[in-house]
Design a protein around this nucleic acid. Sequence first.
RNA 1: GGCGACGUAGCCAAGUGGACUAAGGCGGAGGUCUGCAAAACCUCUAUUCGGCGGUUCGAAUCCGCCCGUCGCCUCCA
Length: 459
Amino acid sequence: MKLYNTLTGITEEFVPADGKTVKMYVCGVTPYAPVHVGHALSYVAFDVLRRYLEYLGYQVEHVQNFTDVDDKIIQRAKDAGVEPEALADQYIEDFFHNIDALNVQRAHVYPRATQEIEPIVETIKGLVEKGYAYPVGGDVYFRVNSSDEYGKLSHRTLDGMIAGARVAVDDQKEHPMDFALWKGAIAGEPAWDSPWGPGRPGWHIECTSMAMTYLGASLDIHGGGQDLIFPHHENEIAQSEASTGMKPFARYWVHNGLLMLGEDKMSKSLGNLVSVKEALEEYTPDCLRLYLLSSHYRSPLHYSDEGCAAMERSGDRLRHALRLDNNGGGEPLDPGRCEARFFEAMDDDLNTPRALAALFDLAREINRGRDAGQEIKGCQDTLRRLGGILGLTFQGRDSSGEDHLAAKPFIELLLSTREELRRAKQFDLADNIRDGLDRQGVIVEDTPQGARWEYHPTD
RNA sequence: GGCGACGUAGCCAAGUGGACUAAGGCGGAGGUCUGCAAAACCUCUAUUCGGCGGUUCGAAUCCGCCCGUCGCCUCCA
């Protein structure tokens, strides 16, 4: 398949270094707030990438970290009067709960920065010994000038960055762009021992260390949101390549576009976010996936209720095509053309909008084939299989909640009365019951198997 | 200020030089089904791709300028 590589700026044929095992590291969250739909966009995109690579026959080794020590966690924990570790635990649990609900396959390893301090310190030690980093005042900084390739991922130069004039001046640092590998301890904050005194890891070094610990010195794919390209991933490259002397640290850098809410990107720091939990209260997991996959993974996507609601209906369309039964035993319908279009789209830098279009066309052909009396079973199996590569479950809204509705026996009593009235051709009275229920939020639909109803609270 | 992305139907969104006389979804309009509805299905729904120039036999697709939107340069998926 072809993948766009941020490092080279072009779409390249992707093949893992050893031809069969894909080492994939995806940047995880800093757990101090509920996981939001923007995170979901990223993890669903990489989930689809992984599922597709596995479908192609590769074995994927998937590692995703938690940055469980950082300024924001410490601050939030202080505000909430809990230990930073407890706060992180709470949001890691939230992360798993919601990401599982979205049918995202779990990574094989989820290292946590706080549990990897030893290898992190070792990595920093090595960088200091080789002259790529220097300790000063309890901190350790990476010497940005030690690499003439610094800026190769984000495609910018040190001069250009400084011209931005938003670089904080710090007299301790040799160069304004030097970044912290180790931060000296501040009283009352979590700290670990190190050769430079007590402190904690900087933001970027943990990923370098954990990626190497669990996947080795060279990764096939390193992923994350586009907002991580600079400085996070740029710094990771600098550290990692300096540390091992091996280039490239990651062969393919894959970045997803950012989710927008209103005029800005959805982000924890701006506070304009919709949590996955909130979204799942309104929409099915398939609906959210369809929505997140309806635009290309590298494009920005605007989140909206209207958009999600539209996707719920399009999801119904796919589900319905799978529910149909054969209507006569005619010629089997051939899914080949749609299937080929699906794979062609997926091969082309994971073009999920086009892949979805192929799925919708397949659904239409199933509907048409059924009406024409053709054998549709094979096409339905294909639709289910291809949808599975996109992580779709084809599960509709769970209607079991209605069992708990206190009014259920009364509704069913009214409906059986209505059924008798209909049989007696007393349609005015029957329609009265239907309209009356409708006003209470109970939607009645007649089917060959009898009346179906659904409760939609009217708020 | 520097770097980058984008602007396609009422809305979302593919397509990036020639079978595009522009996918797909939502919405809308007709139809089938139904006692009537609903749901579902089927059909139709952009002579045109932000604007103006240019290159080319040929441009939504390449180049230039203009207008507009967004991202990164600071924590962020």
